[in-house]
Each structure stands twice: as structure tokens, then as C-alpha cells.
Design a binder for these strands. Structure first.
Lengths: 354, 354
DNA sequence: CCGCACCATCGAATCGATTCGACAACCAGC
DNA sequence: GCTGGTTGTCGAATCGATTCGATGGTGCGG
């Protein structure tokens, strides 16, 4: 055994105690004499033993301390969106001190829901978190269920046996909609997040609008409808990125009957619209009002400050972390919904006089 | 056994074969009759058995298939920098198909190198990747060594027994420096990445310049020195973020003898400098030239395109992935260094006539 | 002085799989 | 018909720890 790494048995032998006593010296779960403990620890140091191998512990306890986070293909795409980052940060910050690690499970790009990512099948995890907006026909979800892994879904659709953590984006969208309408706008366009994994780009036809698959754009659109908004156009984007917002802005603002207000479903999209307006020589908000969603801090948009409804991103992560903790204690946490708050910036104002 | 999840032993019993045969049916490692295999698989389906528990497999093989990535506190901070994201994306994309998962190991914010993050001690991993620029006095590194976990260091300092993956940023910096000097600039200021975990902000004194702890700012600074640049000022920033670049730009461009060119050590910092110049009413590059580092695509800077030296971020991730694979095959991969390429944009030009 | 309780320690079972060596059955060749 | 090789299956050891129940001491109270 000279070549391979020492095990608890080696340490126990060196200290002249049994394996079980040596285990007690490290775990502290049980009565042990101080002198014995010191002897074991000394033997461990002498053998260069670096503590109990987590694998052995895990096998016995059935727990790995790993939380799998299914991020879809967001690493490449939406992770350029601070929304995902800040939530992941909140999650990791809550989980880390509890001894849980976050395992990133990336998905292949632009796959239909039937696609199964290999790590979902093979990776060890105690809990899975779906941050990509789960749908019922997701093959990954089916696999997780089969494996008996508890699932937490973030802003997904309500699903059997899945713990939901969401935000009141429908309410928030309605509030934002009423704010814009209250300013007097009548020609309002919407820049939407992707409808489904096809990630199309352009003004959506009524038929297309009827088949929105993903929950987030659907809810936010529904919120605006709740506020009584009948949009003059809904522009579908392939991802929540500045460049797509800019393309949408150019498309919507170039025509003859341009809208007097544009509401985007994310701040990154909204900032792209602001940039498009600037490039077209339009003043914000005098010529066109722009509002976003999420409440990010976008330093490069200065001096403009986006009107937006902000969501508590770090808290969202923390809530997920607490749900994980509850699950591991054997409890079944209920669904949680976080509120949003309207933040009026400098990018919305009354519509132009004529 | 009705309540708990079925095990391979249950399946074997149901199929009327031994555990070893049942194992063969799943792993395929060994001769097995087609009829027997079908019988085992049928029994597995009947029992709702979801395949061998990875934990058991791992304990036996000693491999977890997990690559720990120590990101420092970058999740909060520099992960807003696409540099980290794109590299992580490249890493995850290479590792995923190989059956490896990426475990995020966050660090606490602003800790001295003696700080040890709990997951480094306890998490299961086959290889650790340090993407935060390792230093020799890092407590996390010491722990990884004690645990016998191979370490890959990205752009860190050369360390005993650590596999290095780097970029030729000193060469790239020199090339960028020569480009700027070739345009005729003589008053050149530098906006630097953080020197150490203290993350100070402001123009660095000569004493401060002599004690740069982190490798990346030091190498990039050395490259500019190689090009013969003697900066009129080096501004130290707390992180590679737009707002800090903007603050640096304001500080450097407000004075009476403002530099005619500013070289930033990252594109995010450089874009902040451009924004500061715009706010001060300075034209880029007519009044001041700005150059960056990394070669990112920053859509919101349009119509400006940053002059920068670009690094192959996705390939950096892929190289790390291959190093991991080599390590797991028992090989000892050598250090790798990737080249950078100068990309001249619209933000650099000759200095103003007077 | 006896007995009860408690503390420290140990042995053995357990977690869920992989894998090596043994063994039996079967086929082909001589 | 016997031998040698292949193929399929099985039993048992193994990975590295935790944990339960048992045992042997010690101390305290009655």
C-alpha cells in the first residue's frame, strides 16, 4: 500500500485502533477519548492522509452533496445575460456554506425538447434545478423523474411533482404596462423573448403568437394584455441579447407608423432597442419610450436609466438554495413566488405631441 | 425493499441471474448471451430500475467524472465578463461529451490567499481547474495537492506539479503596444486589471507597481514595457467591469495633460474608457485612442469597434478539456500556450496634431 | 461491596456497484 | 472419444467509508 493513497484503514492500523474508532476521530459522531483522537490524527498526519474520501462517505449516506443545474445552452447564450449569472451566484452562495456544490449540466444548442443530455443520465446529484424553463415534454425531466431525483423548476410551467420557484412576472408586466399606458401611449410594440427552442427572429404572426411554447414570454405577454395593451407588433427574438434587441428596434422603428413606446421582455433587449433608437436619431423618451424587464444595472447605457420591473435575482437563488436544503432534510418545500417592483427610469415619458 | 429504489441485486434476483451477470448486461464489459441480456433489461424495466447507481460505480473505479472549477469570486464579478463565460463554455462543451461534469467551486469575496473554500476540502473531483490565476501561497492549491488531485492552472504563475494552460499575453501586449506606438503616440496611459485580492482603485504609485501579485496584469504590463512603452500613468481597477473602466477613463482624461492613447488590459475596461471619453465630449480616435484586450464582441459600443488583441477563448476551454482527458488516461500533459492576434478596430488612430 | 449506567472501543454489516478467477457447458479438430 | 479453446455465468473480493450492536472497562450511588 506504499504507492497508493492511504485509507482510513491504514491510518487506523498505524494508530493501533480499529477502523470504526478512526472514523469517529474524523467525523466526531460518537464518544471518543481525546487521547485516542489525537493519536489517530497524528497517525493521519504521519501518513499524509487527507481526510475521509468523500466517495466512501457518499456511498454509505446515499448523498453526494451535489446539486445539478440544467442550464440548457445558456452558458453560451443567456449567460451573457446577467440575469442567469446573478441567480446562479445567489444559488452558489447559499449552497456553498451548506456544503453543496453546483454541477453545471449544459445542454446542446437548439435541441427539441426530446433531446436528452448525457450528464442528466449519468451524473451524480441529489437535486436537480432546471433554470431553463421546463416544459412537460422535456426528455431531461423524464429522465430525472425516472432516476428519482427531486426537481426544482425556475419559472417553468406547473408540473407534477416538481417544486416551483417563480416570480410574479405576469403581475410585474401588468404593472409596467399600466405605467406605459398611463403616460398616454397608444401605439405600443413588444420585443419578446424566444417563444421556443426554434428561436426565430422577426415580427410574430397571429398564428405564431398562438403557439408560444415557453412560459416566460407567454406570462409576460399575458401580463401586458392584462393591462389592456393591444400591441401593434410583437417582435420575437432568438435570445436575450443586446444585438437582438438592436435588430428588433431597427425593424420596429424604421417603418412609417412607428410605435411611440416599446416594451421589451428583458433589459438586455430593451437596451438594444435604446441603442437602435439612438442610431436612428430618435430621442429617448421624447420620440420613443422604451421599457425593459429584470431591473439590471447597465452602466454602458448611461446617461439613460432603463424603466424596468426588477426581480430579486440573488434572492431567487437563495430561495432555491433553501428549497434544496429542505429537500435534503426530508421535507417537501412548497412552491415559492417572488414579487417584482416597478422602477421608473429616464427611458419612458409621454408620447410625442403628434 | 419495496419502498426504496431497486438495486442491481434486485434486478438480478428478478431476472434469475447473479449480480455479476446483471452488471455485465449494463456495462457490456464482458461476454454475455443476447437472451440473458434481454432478460436482465426486461427485469430492470419491470422494476423501474434506472441503471447502475453512479456512486457505486465511482467508488469501485475511484473516478467521479467531475472536474472542479475554482472560479474565485468570479461568479459575482468577472463572470459578468464574457471572457470567463466563453472559456467555461468551451470547457463544458469539451467535457460534456466525454462524460465529465463541471462542478463550480465559488470562493468567498475578497479573501487573502490563505483563505480555504470549504468545497475544495470536501467535494469529490478527479481534476481541479484554477481559472482565477493561481499563486504559490494559495491555501486552496495546497489542499488540492494534499488531496492528491491533479491541478490545471489557467494563466497562473508557473508552479510545481501544476499543468499550465496559458495565452501569450505578454507577446500580444507587446504587439498591441507597438501598434499604438507606431501610430505616433507618446503619452500613453494604461488601465490595469486588479493587482491582487485587495482590488484597489486609482493611479498606482511606483511602490504599488512593484508589488503586483497577480500574473495577468503583470504579464500584460511587461508586454507593453517590452514594446518600449513608458506609461504616463497606470490606473488600477478592482475588476474587469465597464463601470471601472469608465471611472478610470474619467480620471485619466479629465486632467490637463491627458494621454493621447489609453490601453486597457481588458475589453470591458476599454469600453468603459470609450464611454468616459464620449461623456467628456472627446472623439475616439481623433482626440484619444483606446485599445483593449481579449477580442470580445461588444455590440453596445457600436459604431465603434475596439482595437484589441483577441485570444481564442473557446479553444482555451477545449485545451483544458483535452488536458483533463489526458490526465484521466494516466498521461501527464505538458503546458500549453495559445497565441493571440491583433485586431485593429476603429478606436485607435494617430494622435491629435497638437 | 454490589450493581447499574455510561463511556470508549471494536467487529461486522452495509452502501451499490465492478471485476477477477473459477467453473461448467459446448463446439471443433484430430 | 479425448483434448483444447471459447463462451457464458457465477461467487467472492474489493472500493472506502459509516454505523449499529456488542463488549469490556470504569465510576458512582446505594
Amino acid at each position: 500500500m506504499a504507492s497508493s493513497r492511504p485509507t482510513l484503514a491504514d491510518v487506523a492500523a498505524a494508530a493501533g485502533v480499529s477502523v470504526s474508532t478512526a472514523s469517529l476521530a474524523f467525523s466526531g459522531a460518537g464518544p471518543i477519548a481525546a487521547t485516542t483522537k489525537d493519536r489517530v490524527l497524528a497517525a493521519a498526519t504521519a501518513l499524509d492522509y487527507s481526510g475521509p474520501n468523500p466517495l466512501g462517505r457518499q456511498l454509505r449516506s446515499g448523498r453526494s452533496g451535489i446539486v445539478g443545474v440544467l442550464i440548457g445552452d445558456q452558458l453560451r447564450r443567456s449567460f451573457r445575460d446577467p440575469v442567469s449569472i446573478q441567480m446562479l451566484d445567489g444559488l452558489a452562495s447559499t449552497l456553498g456554506p451548506l456544503g453543496f456544490g453546483v454541477l453545471l449540466i449544459p445542454g446542446a444548442a437548439d435541441q427539441p425538447p426530446a433531446h436528452l443530455d448525457p450528464l442528466v443520465e449519468s451524473a451524480v446529484m441529489d437535486v436537480a434545478v432546471l433554470i431553463c424553463g421546463a416544459t412537460a415534454d422535456d426528455a431531461n425531466l423524464a429522465t430525472l423523474r425516472r432516476r428519482g431525483i427531486p426537481v426544482i423548476s425556475v419559472e417553468g410551467e406547473p408540473l407534477e411533482g416538481v417544486i416551483e420557484v417563480g416570480i410574479e412576472d405576469r403581475v410585474g408586466a401588468a404593472e409596467l404596462g399600466r405605467h406605459v399606458q398611463g403616460l398616454g401611449h397608444e401605439r405600443i410594440a413588444i420585443v419578446s423573448l424566444p417563444f421556443d427552442w426554434q428561436r426565430r427572429s422577426g415580427v410574430a404572426t397571429p398564428a405564431r403568437l398562438a403557439e408560444i411554447r415557453w412560459e416566460i414570454p407567454r406570462r409576460r405577454l399575458a401580463g401586458l394584455t392584462d393591462a389592456g395593451i393591444v400591441p401593434v407588433a410583437v417582435y420575437e427574438t432568438p435570445a436575450s441579447l443586446v444585438e437582438h434587441g438592436k435588430a428588433a428596434g431597427h425593424a420596429l422603428l424604421a417603418g412609417p407608423d412607428r410605435p411611440t413606446a416599446i416594451i421589451a421582455q428583458s433589459d438586455l433587449l430593451a437596451s438594444g432597442v435604446v441603442l437602435a433608437a439612438r442610431e436612428l436619431g430618435l430621442r429617448v423618451p421624447q420620440d420613443v419610450s422604451v421599457a425593459g424587464f429584470d431591473g439590471l444595472d447597465l452602466p454602458w447605457l448611461a446617461p439613460d436609466v432603463l424603466t424596468s420591473v426588477s426581480q430579486p435575482l440573488a434572492e431567487k437563488g437563495a430561495v432555491i438554495g433553501r428549497a434544496v436544503q429542505a429537500l435534503m432534510s426530508g421535507e417537501l418545500p412548497g412552491p415559492e413566488t417572488l414579487g417584482m417592483t416597478l422602477q421608473v427610469g429616464t427611458t419612458t415619458g409621454p408620447p410625442p405631441a403628434h
